[in-house]
Amino acid sequence: MNDTGSLGDDVQLLTLDVNGTSCEVITSPRRTLVDVLRHNLRLTGTHVGCEHGICGACTVLVDGLPVRACLMFAAQAEGKQLTTVESLADPGTGELNDLQRAFTEHHGLQCGFCTPGFLMLAQGFLTERPEATKEEIREVVAANLCRCTGYQTIVEAIDACATARRAQRAAGTEETSCN
């Protein structure tokens, strides 16, 4: 029995900035970011789907941009701002943000396993390209796999959210919520 609680290979202390909170993790360097988020930090909203960067279930934001958390070691994420699906809803009330609401209104999820990845993909993308057309959105949605929806309602949800955000900006309001 080697069940001594040893972590096997050399262990390091990492400081990760996750959803605006600084977290310290002691881990071996071979642990991927998604495993550290899920199992060390217990942020289980980010899912593991393929561990080779194709399905996108593990998509999170690193410095605001969507990345595959399975293709990054946690050690590489030190000094970067990490954002996961747990950050989207209002932390006080739990109220869904406009993107999340658009997903539910358009039935953009069924089993919900791929959903956090799509949400973070869309969140990162729309921040960078608020003026994205529906065709551009479709191209970006093609980055992740969903086995339930056939994608159409995911595209429609993101497009509706982007449209509502643009309308709101045009109306000169500060708030970024869509109905």
Partner: peptide
């Protein structure tokens, strides 16, 4: 090249 989340890294 792949998709956006690949290109960002």
């Amino acid at each position: 090249i792949g998709h956006v989340p690949i290109r960002t890294r």
